[in-house]
Design a protein around this nucleic acid. Structure first.
Lengths: 203, 203, 203, 203
DNA sequence: GATGAATGAGACTTCATTCAT
DNA sequence: AATGAATGAAGTCTCATTCAT
C-alpha cells in the first residue's frame, strides 16, 4: 500500500473513529457517573477532543445520548435476529432469545450503578429507538409459544391464560432477572425463571 | 391546659405537620417531574413555605429525598408484616406478599414517568433504607416456600433448584411485573407470573 | 427615628436600590461597550452583586435591556408631558417639545458610541415600549402645527404639504440633529433646523 | 493563448469573482440577519465556499465587514460625483446630491431591519472609510449654498446662521429622512425637508 | 422557627479562527 | 488556492445552599 493510500485510509478511519471514540467515551462515563453527573467537558476530555468537537458530531448532549441508544438498540436487534435464526428446541431457544435481548441490555446498561437514570433519560426515546427491536423480540417469543402449543408441548389452558397474556408474563418474568447484582446472578436467575415459567406452561 | 402548653403543642404539631407537608409535596413533584427537574424552589412553593425552611427540616435535597424513601420503606414494611400475618393457602398468600411489597412500590414510584430516575436517585440508599424491608420480605417468601415443600405441595427437585435459588427466582420473576404500563396490567402480570412460577414448582 | 425604623427604611431602600443599581450599571456599560460586548458578568461586577442576582430581578439579558428602555421611555414621556403643558409661542414651544423628546434620547442613548447597536437591540421593543411616547409626541407637534395654521402664522399651502406630511417632515428633520457628535452641536443643529423648517412654513 | 495562460486568467478571474461573491453574500446576510447573528459559517455557505476560504480573502469577520463598507463608500462617492457634475438649479441639484448620498445608504443599509447594528459595527470605520466621501459631499453642498448666496437666491442672515451652520443644518435635516419605514416615504420626506429648509433660507 | 434575597460554581452551547491536508 | 475538522474562550442561565433579619 502506498503512503498516500495508507494516509487516506488512516484519515478516513480517524474521521469515522472520532465519532465512535466519543460514543464509547460517553457511554463509559454515563455508566460510571450517570447522565447528569457527566458533563460535556468530561466527555470531551475522555475522548481527547475539544468540547466544541462534540458538537460537530452531535447537536446536543441529548442527541449524543440518543445516538448511544440507537447504537445499542441496533446491536440488540442484531442479536435477537441471530437468536431467531437458531434451530433449537423450545427452552434453549427461548433462553437464547432472552439472552440476546435482556443479556445485552444488562451488560451495557443495567450493570451500571446508574442504570435507572440512563433508562429514564432514554425513556422518551424508548418508543422510537427501542420500539422496533422490542416488537421483533415480542413476536419471536410469541411465535415460539404458538409453536409450543401447536406441538402439544405447552398448554395454556392449564393456567387459564390467553396467548398474549402468556407471552406478556413470560417476558415480564424474565425482565425480573435484570435486577441481579452481577452478570452471573443475572444468568442464573434468567435460567431459573425460564425453567420455572415454562414448566408452569407444560402440558 | 395552660396557654403556654397549648401553644407549645400547637407549635409542635405545626412543626410536625410542616415536615409532612414538605414530604408530601416533594414526593408529588418528584413523581410528576423527576428528581432533577424538581427544584427546591418548586418544593417550597408547593409546600407553601420559604425555601430556607426546607433546610430547617432536611439538610439537603438528597436528604429530603432520603426521608421520602424512609417513609415509603416504613409503609412497605408495615404492609409486608400485615400480609405475613394472614392465614391463607400458598398461592393467595404469596400473592398477598408480592402485592404488599411490589404493589406499594409500583403505586408510589414505578407508576411515575420518572420512576427510573427516582429509583436511581435512591439507589445508594437502597441498602440502608430498603434493605431491612427487603430482608423481611425475602424471609417471608422463603418461609412460604419451605412450608410448601414441607407440605408436599412444592417440589424443588423437579426443576433442580435450591431453596435459595427458588426464592430468588420467584421474587425476581414477580419484579418483572413492575414494568407494566398501568396498575391493572401490573396486577394481571403479577398474578400470571405467580401462577406460572408456582405451577412450575408444583410436585 | 428609632433604630428599627431606620433599619427597615434602609432595607427597603436597599431592596429598591438594587434593581436601580443594576439598571444604572447596565445602562452605563451598554453605553460604553455596546450590548453584546457587555456580559452579564460585567454587569454583575459593576453593580457589585453576584451573577445570579441579576436573574432575580430580570429574567434574561434581553429583559434587563427592555427594563432600561421602559425606564427611559417613561422619563421621555414625562418630559414631553411637561413640555406640552408649557404656555409658549410656536417656535419656543416646538423647540421645548423636540428637546424633551430628542434631547433626552440623545443624552442617554445616542451620545454613546454604540448608540446604533442599542437602538437595534431595542428595535423590536420600539413598538411596545416607545410607541406610546411617540404617539403623544407626534400629536403634540400636530396640535402645535394646527394652531399655527389657525392663527395664520403658518401656511402649509406655500410648500404644498398636507398637515400630516408637514408634521412628518418637521419631526424627521429634527431627528437629523441626533447624529451630532456632542450635545452642544446637537442643540445648535436642532435649533437651526427648527428655525429653518419653521421659517419655511411661515406665511 | 496558451493553456497555462488561460488557466491562470481563469483562476485570477475566479479568484476575483470569489471575493465579490463573498462580499455580496455577506452584505445580503448582514442586511437580513444583522452582523452578530450572521456567522462566518453562514457566509461561507451562502457564498458556496469553505469557511477557511473566507480567511484567504479577509483577515477576519471585521475586515470582511470593512471591505463591504469600502465598497459601498466607493459607490456612494461615485454617485455624489455624478450628482456634482449635473448642471441644475439649486433645489433639484441639492435633491440630487442628497439622493446620491442618503438614498444609496438608505437602500443598502438603512432599509435593513438591522440597520442600526450595521451602522454600529461600522462606526469605528466611519472616519476612515466614509470620511472622504462625506467630505466630498459636504463640500458639494457648501458650494451649492455659497452659490445660492452669491446669486441672491439664499439669505443666511434672515435666519442668522453662518455658512457652515447652514450647511450642517441642511444636511442634518435631510438625514432625518433616513428613519423612514420604506423607500417611498424616504423620498417623500427627503423632498419635503429640502423644500422646507430651502424655503427657510430663501431671501 | 421562618424567611427569601443573595450567592457562585458549573452546565450547555456558539462561533471566530487556525492549520494539516 | 481551497478545504473543513478541530479548537477553546466566552457567554447566558440554573439552582442548591447560606445567612442576616
Amino acid at each position: 500500500m502506498s503512503k498516500a493510500q495508507s494516509s487516506a485510509a488512516a484519515q478516513k478511519t480517524a474521521g469515522t473513529d472520532k465519532r465512535e471514540v466519543i460514543l464509547t467515551a460517553a457511554l463509559d462515563l454515563f455508566r460510571h457517573y450517570g447522565y447528569r453527573r457527566t458533563s460535556m467537558e468530561d466527555i470531551a476530555r475522555a475522548a481527547a477532543v475539544a468540547k466544541g468537537t462534540l458538537y460537530l458530531y452531535f447537536k446536543s448532549k441529548d442527541e449524543l445520548f440518543e445516538a448511544i441508544c440507537r447504537s445499542l438498540a441496533e446491536q440488540v436487534g442484531e442479536g435477537v435476529a441471530r437468536a431467531e435464526a437458531l434451530d433449537l428446541p423450545l427452552e434453549p431457544k427461548l433462553t437464547a432469545l432472552m439472552e440476546a435481548k435482556l443479556g445485552f441490555v444488562y451488560r451495557w446498561i443495567l450493570s451500571s450503578p446508574h442504570a435507572a437514570e440512563l433508562v429514564d433519560s432514554g425513556s422518551r426515546l424508548s418508543e422510537d429507538v427501542f420500539g422496533e427491536v422490542y416488537d421483533r423480540f415480542y413476536n419471536a417469543v410469541r411465535h415460539l409459544v404458538r409453536g409450543g402449543v401447536a406441538s402439544g408441548e405447552l398448554d395454556l389452558n392449564a393456567v387459564g391464560l390467553t396467548e398474549e397474556a402468556t407471552v406478556d408474563a413470560l417476558i415480564a418474568a424474565a425482565y425480573g432477572a435484570e435486577k441481579a447484582p452481577d452478570e452471573k446472578m443475572f444468568h442464573a436467575r434468567l435460567t431459573a425463571i425460564i425453567k420455572l415459567t415454562l414448566r408452569g406452561l407444560r402440558a
